[in-house]
């Protein structure tokens, strides 16, 4: 390790923060780009499952609220893309490229956003539990050594507090509703549970995760976060009279940890790596057409500003 890198690592170990224009090791830059690009793209692709329910939202208030929520997700994508753009600028990459990476498969997005939102209750569970999981993930990143990311996360988390209430409100209405509504809710939970466990990533600390911990980009492991999610949400799910579709699930008092059935790591791994989830292709195509087939708009908007000639 060269002297500069050593100094850099020592600085962040002491709790120092890094800014976009500071010198940083290539490895640090690349890890950040990979992590934040995936985060940004997950926000944008994460808008789709709920977006599908915007036109069908069952009351005027729900329609407004879910629009606002999906809009926030796009806004989070925007904030995060700006962070990646500054990091990727020295590598010659622009917004145009970062978006194109989605449908050319160069950047991955979270497993949950490859899944189908089949019913209004699915939209509710996404708002409640998928967002809940995402909030835990994001809250754990607030201490990241990369300051521009930390600042954006702070803003995102503030907005997520509305998302939390929004998701819970949909769920509570269904849980207090008719038999049919409660059944919809239970089915939605059954469908999403395994995806939720997978969401936090593999149990073992991968070499990439190891490096992120080393540079204090992350400070907590996947399993720590999954446990926190179970801590917060299992009792609430059960309090609504819902059954979590895992007979093995229990809290082990001695180990002070939740014991759960392993999600199908291979299946979900393939979904993310190969974009082979039920909705992967369709949503990537939406993103492609939004970007490619409307390039003429961006071009026209930029050109109409240029002086003639």
């Amino acid at each position: 390790m060269d002297h500069r890198t050593e100094e850099f690592v020592e600085r962040i170990r002491r709790g120092g923060k890094v800014e976009a224009t500071d010198w940083m090791p290539d490895e640090y830059r690349k890890l950040l780009i990979k992590l934040i690009h995936m985060h940004a793209v997950s926000e944008i692709m994460g808008a789709y499952p709920e977006k599908e329910w915007v036109p069908k939202a069952p009351t005027l208030r729900r329609k407004l609220a879910i629009m606002a929520k999906v809009q926030d997700e796009m806004g989070h994508g925007q904030l995060l893309l700006r962070v990646v753009e500054d990091l990727a600028a020295p590598l010659g990459k622009t917004r145009e490229d970062l978006i194109a990476d989605i449908y050319t498969g160069k950047v991955k997005f979270h497993n949950v956003f490859h899944m189908e939102a089949r019913t209004w209750a699915d939209a509710g569970v996404i708002g409640w539990l998928v967002d809940g999981a995402a909030i835990i993930n994001q809250a754990a990143l607030l201490e990241t050594s990369y300051a521009p990311y930390a600042r954006v996360l702070k803003r995102i988390c503030a907005e997520e507090s509305f998302h939390m209430q929004h998701g819970e409100n949909i769920i509570l209405a269904l849980a207090m509703g008719t038999k049919q509504q409660r059944q919809m809710l239970q089915e939605a939970l059954n469908y999403w549970w395994e995806s939720l466990l997978f969401f936090f990533g593999p149990k073992e600390v991968t070499p990439a995760a190891e490096r992120m911990l080393y540079y204090r980009i992350r400070t907590k492991t996947n399993e720590e976060l999954r446990q926190k999610f179970l801590d917060k949400y299992v009792p609430r799910i059960q309090s609504l009279g819902l059954t979590i579709p895992d007979e093995q699930l229990r809290y082990d008092r001695e180990r002070k940890a939740w014991v759960y059935s392993e999600p199908d790591w291979d299946k979900f791994g393939r979904i993310v790596r190969e974009n082979r989830g039920p909705k992967s292709r369709e949503r990537m195509e939406l993103r492609r057409s939004a970007h490619e087939e409307q390039r003429w708009v961006r071009e026209a908007m930029a050109r109409s500003h240029l002086p003639a000639g």
Binding site: V54, M74, G77, Q294
Partner: peptide, 17 residues
């Protein structure tokens, strides 16, 4: 609202919503 997630650029998507 059908334009959500489909506008020509991300900033414009947020504004249109």
């Amino acid at each position: 609202s059908e334009w959500l997630g489909l506008c020509p650029d991300i900033e414009g998507d947020v504004a249109f919503s």
